[in-house]
Amino acid sequence: MFATEFEYKKANSVSEAIQLLSNDADAKLMAGGHSLIPLMKLRLARPGTVIDIGGIAELQGITANNGILRIGALTTHAQLAESPLVRDSARILWETAYGIGDPQVRNRGTIGGNVSHADPASDLPTVLVAMDAKFTIQGQGGITRRGSRTVAAADFFTGAFSTVLAENEILTAIEMPVLAANQHSEYAKMAHPATSYAVVGAAAVVTMDGNTCTVARVAVGGLTPSPVRGQSVEQALVGQELNAETIAAAANLIDNDLGSDIIGDIFASAEYRRAMAAIELKHAIFHATGLAHH
């Protein structure tokens, strides 16, 4: 399958990429191309220009400083899954990256491309919402003219395949707090058997004082156009001693947070996905806390 004809331009810096974007209303950015190329081959996307940002050095790199893990937008899923720094700073992200696609997809697909594509069935958006990640976005004008802004993960996703990114903006990095020793995290998903995309995905990050939960952040995705924070669940977890009963009771409250816009398709009906959200969330919280369960 071939894409429709397009002009190919390679950007060597973020500012060059923004310049190219600003001068061309019909341009798309390409990082690893693992979301964009399939769309172009199916002709669901027909950009007149493809701007290849895959070689921009300043978008690479994983660092942790002052309690903040910073991941360059071009970091591949394989780099996340192979990084001891990610493992020790954000275990949920490390484990989730390893579960994406297959080795070849992980070798090319990037975290920035993944979240900018904003596929509802993707794993990383849900995880990043639960991790309270911040997305750094660079626009025209440079730092002196409010060219750069930071958006919370929960506000970045605005719907299926939609984000707050403006046409001349680039996601440059994703930052999140490094998890402390008493913060436990886990992502659980009902994976589509062929693609391993999330039919329903659930992420939990819990802060524990002994057996008692002091802070909780949970999110679900896959069944909603963009990830949903489970605030009812979080409120029910905080102050509780976590055990089979309290976790199950809290996870069941996710239904209150889901709203009415639930995805249903040939793989799983909306009703089924809604029922599975509580189950996957229960798995995520259980595994995060290290409790045994069935």
Partner: peptide, 20 residues
């Protein structure tokens, strides 16, 4: 699947220009 710069890629999901 082919190997590009040390890692495997699916060459149906890579443009020839990306391999420059």
């Amino acid at each position: 699947v082919v190997n590009m710069d040390g890692t495997t890629v699916k060459s149906c999901t890579c443009l020839a220009v990306q391999a420059d």
